[in-house]
């Protein structure tokens, strides 16, 4: 048996921010952004339903939709995202519901939280671990991730609505958010 030394073929990045970023705090009066994509209608539906609840509480909602991420289209997306992040106080970023879309959801969420605004990524259960893994590899292991059931996009509108309603309070909790000042006092 010959013993000797071999060289490590792997490489990892060393930097990491374990902080989840700032809590969202009181949402009333805040500008809240939803990041959407081109695939998941269930996420469009849940965003609409959550947006209605937030607007009722006095928040202002805007949307940004991720499209192609390469070529001129990708450059346009990056510029749009940067500009949009400059117009909102906090971001709800989804949907991590496949491989590449989890990758881009987390990547955009990291871009958001790295600007200093409260940010939460939304993933479905099957992609929860992956979302955390990819966040850590993106240098932001503490990224907030709220988890919705899986499968989700295969459900009917009414079922998705019920899921959204059932998860709204838990999402706020994960986000460190309360709807209004009186909620904070409680």
């Amino acid at each position: 048996m010959t013993i000797g030394k071999v060289l490590d073929p792997t490489a990892t990045r060393d930097d990491d921010v374990a902080s989840p970023g700032p809590d969202a705090g009181v949402l009333a009066g805040k500008k809240i952004g939803f990041r959407l994509d081109q695939i998941w209608r269930a996420w469009d539906w849940i965003s609409e339903d959550w947006a209605a609840r937030l607007e009722e509480a006095g928040a202002e909602v805007s949307y940004w939709r991720s499209c192609g991420r390469s070529g001129e289209e990708g450059e346009r997306m990056a510029a749009e995202l940067k500009e949009w992040l400059g117009t909102i106080d906090m971001a709800i970023v989804g949907l991590a519901n496949c491989g590449s879309c989890t990758g881009w959801t987390v990547r955009d969420a990291i871009t958001s939280v790295n600007t200093g605004i409260p940010t939460i990524a939304i993933a479905t259960k099957n992609f929860e671990d992956f979302a955390h893994e990819i966040a850590a590899r993106g240098g932001r292991s503490g990224l907030r991730v709220h988890v919705l059931p899986y499968p989700l996009n295969e459900q009917e509108r009414d079922d998705v609505k019920a899921i959204g309603e059932a998860h709204f309070d838990a999402m706020l909790e994960d986000f460190g958010a309360v709807l209004e000042m009186r909620d904070a006092a409680e």
């Binding site: 048996m1 010959t2 013993i3 000797g4 030394k5 071999v6 060289l7 490590d8 073929p9 792997t10």
Partner: peptide, 25 residues
């Protein structure tokens, strides 16, 4: 010149390949 971490291990076929699989390489 080489900056990578060194690992001491068996260099024969079975020994090294078992080690590499354990390391996920």
């Amino acid at each position: 010149w080489l900056a990578s971490r060194r690992y001491e291990t068996e260099l024969d076929f079975e020994g090294f390949n078992s080690f590499a699989m354990e390391q996920g390489w």
